[in-house]
Design a protein around this nucleic acid. Structure first.
Length: 636
RNA sequence: GCAUCUGUAGCUCAACUGGAUAGAGCACCAGACUUCGGAUCUGGGGGUUAGGGGUUCGAAUCCCUUCAGGUGCACCA
């Protein structure tokens, strides 16, 4: 049953009969609230071919349809808009149809596999607010794709190696004194993060000292450098110093000073130590490897706890330590296919200037690989592992360019999966105070945030006193459902690609356009259903019910849209469509609930009808919220 | 500088991908319940859709341009 589709067909037929023209299946829109009608056809596009006034076309169509369509009750024409009013019976049938669908809203199986890669944390510090947006988006889009008939593989590619991890390791070696999560009582990922911060602090201190030493030597040339830089670094430093001298533009000068600082930083003892450790790791040195494993193990334990708390899980976990060497065979393949080219120094590149992109390095002159090489290799690996038809990468929009290039290369290499690649790019999460900066300690920690939300959910629930009769365990579960529900809804309701504002005060607002509001409506319906059960009121047997109220029809209409919305969300890779829809449903129900008594309605048919409508609404609410990864409490 | 994304009510966000008088929530003001859960419902004020041009029956949406902001432009990851 598809009301819209059959209406479109009838309109198509009408054009044939009245005007003797064949048109494409016309698309309809929902009629605006201010006009009478359910669906609207815009007739402006047809004026050209028919050479008639829009009003005339609309009227003729309307008259024809009112006479010949079994579902249309009446029509009205406003300018070039033909508003169609459906028969009440159509909506009653729609409700019956919804009720009969075993998994209403889901699309049939597509027999296609899609991998969604998300989360992908670094193992040098705990998760923060930005990761939460990523995790929620990835989890939700996985569920949405699944509802659309795909077989989904949720993948996490953990960045467990590299210089940043070595930094934590250096700091731990220097001042760790054998501290562990057990001995300190600090969650593993936070403990490792603590050492990362300490490294950074010490590094900045050392950099500052070195940096100042250089400038002292410039102002007082007779004062020798306190430190001896390697020749190459010294050359760069001198070059920049010379540029600074002749530069007048203060902006350029500060840029140059930034460059200088970077070079100096790389010459610090600490940085050299970290790089040294990285080399040892790559060489597989036993001691380094053991420390790396130990610290990463702590981080995994910490992550696992957080993932569990926020309800995130994966089907496949990749580790960069196992994939970072991949991709070299692809370089050879690309060279043979003439997609890549080699410079005289042996480095390998791809020229994408014809595609409005740049030239991109794929292999260093010393034969070692870069980030892109690794990503190429991992893409192949994913395909080899699962024969996926589609591959979604949930990664922040600062990597838009990288993925443009990556996908373009895979396309040129003619990979079988290249047409199914999608970068689900999302914007940063800002705070009212501005950007999150780890330097300035303005990063919102994921665990802290979750705990805060839990505390507020508890406060609010206890204050209202509606869950006073709960067992302690059930109560904890409820706090959790509300807290996580509020947080997920808040982060998912915004269009992914837009950067968004995280206002802590607003996020804990449980009224209006918020997760708990939607949960509340579900709980209200659950309460109705429980009562109906005990009163012996049945949901079916509403055949005789007629004269539907506007808020009843509005509710049927909106829950009837579920399949369309789920499809739209998948096509746009946008959980926000589902979130907004869930809110609309809840709001529409709330109005219905206010307008129409259910259990105390006049007449058994009315009771049954409204109860059925409520039950179906509850299912739609639960379904949509589950697509966002949000659980629904039956009491709250 | 080049590339790219964004700019909508005081604030946070929508607008079915070009359709009617641009809508919600928060905040503010005023109302509703001798009925099933008030984490509710109704009403009100609040807009030159950053500015300017263009395309057409019709533009927040498409094109050009200016302005403002974000991000990216390493033989880093």
């Amino acid at each position: 049953m598809n009301i819209e589709h059959s209406l479109s067909q009838e309109i198509q037929q009408a054009f044939q009969s009245i005007f003797e023209v064949t048109i494409e299946l016309p698309s309809l829109q929902a009629t605006n609230k201010e006009f009478e009608g359910d669906y609207t056809l815009v007739v402006f596009p047809f004026t050209k071919t028919l050479r008639q006034k829009p009003e005339d076309i609309a009227s003729k169509l309307g008259e024809y349809l009112a006479e010949n369509s079994p579902q249309i009750a009446s029509f009205n024409v406003v300018k070039g808009f033909l508003n169609l009013v459906l028969k009440e019976n159509t909506w009653k049938k729609a409700l019956e149809y919804i009720q009969q669908q075993p998994s209403y809203g889901n699309a049939p199986a597509k027999n296609q596999k899609v991998m969604v890669e998300f989360s992908s944390p670094n193992t040098n510090k705990p998760l923060h607010l930005g990761h939460l947006r990523n995790n929620f988006l990835g989890d939700s889009i996985s569920r949405i794709l699944e509802a659309n008939g795909y077989e989904v593989i949720k993948a996490n590619l953990i960045n467990d190696r590299g210089i940043h991890i070595c930094k934590s390791m250096v700091a731990y070696e220097r001042e760790g004194n054998g501290e562990s999560p057990q001995s300190s009582g600090i969650k593993g990922d936070h403990l490792v993060g603590k050492y990362y911060v300490e490294f950074d602090k010490a590094l900045r201190q050392e950099t500052k000292v070195l940096h100042e030493a250089i400038f002292r030597s410039v102002e007082q040339p007779d004062t020798p450098y306190k430190v001896a830089f390697p020749e190459a670094a010294q050359k760069k430093i001198d070059a920049i110093l010379a540029k600074i001298k002749t530069q007048k533009d203060s902006k350029k000068i500060s840029e140059l000073e930034g460059d200088l600082k970077q070079i100096v930083q790389n010459q610090t003892f600490l940085m050299r130590e970290a790089k040294d450790l990285l080399q040892k790791w790559e060489a597989g040195e036993t001691e380094t490897y053991a420390l790396w494993q130990k610290m990463n193990g702590w981080v995994y334990e910490g992550f696992e706890e957080t993932y569990q708390k926020i309800g995130i899980s994966f089907d496949k976990v990749y580790h960069e330590s196992e994939t970072y060497l991949l991709g070299k065979d692809i370089i050879q393949d690309g060279l043979e296919k003439d997609v890549f080219y080699q410079e005289e120094d042996g480095s390998v590149w791809i020229d994408l200037t014809a595609n409005k992109l740049d030239k991109k390095l794929l292999l260093r002159s010393d034969g070692t690989s870069v980030y892109m090489t690794q990503d190429l290799g991992t893409a192949d690996l994913k395909y080899k592992d699962f024969q996926i038809d589609k591959s979604v990468y949930v990664v922040g929009n600062e990597q838009d360019y990288h993925f443009n290039v990556l996908f373009k290369i895979l396309e040129k290499l003619d990979r079988p999966y290249s047409k199914g690649l999608y970068h689900l790019s999302y914007g940063m999460v800002d705070l009212p105070t501005g950007k999150m900066k780890s330097r300035e300690g303005t990063v919102v920690d994921a665990d802290d945030l979750v705990n805060q939300m839990l505390e507020i959910a508890k406060q609010k629930t206890d204050e209202l006193g509606k869950a006073d009769d709960f067992e302690p365990e059930a109560l904890q579960k409820l706090y959790h459902q509300i807290a996580i529900g509020a947080l997920k809804y808040y982060l998912l309701k915004v269009d992914p690609q837009k950067r968004m504002m995280f206002n802590p005060e607003e996020s804990v607002d449980f009224e209006g356009d918020a997760g708990p509001f939607i949960q509340y409506n579900f709980a209200r319906i659950s309460s109705l259903l429980r009562k109906a059960e005990s009163l012996g009121i049945k949901k079916d047997g509403f055949d005789g019910y007629s004269d539907l109220k506007p808020s009843e029809i509005a509710l049927i209409q909106i829950i009837y849209n579920l399949p369309k919305k789920i499809e739209e969300a998948a096509q746009n890779y946008s959980p926000s469509i589902v979130a907004q829809y869930a809110y609309e449903v809840a709001k529409t129900y709330s109005k219905f609930y206010n307008d129409c008594p259910v259990l105390v309605a006049e007449g058994e048919a009315a009771k049954s009808f409204r109860l059925m409508l409520s039950a179906q609404t509850a299912q739609v609410l639960e379904k949509t919220m589950n697509l966002l990864g949000i659980e629904m409490p039956e009491k709250m």
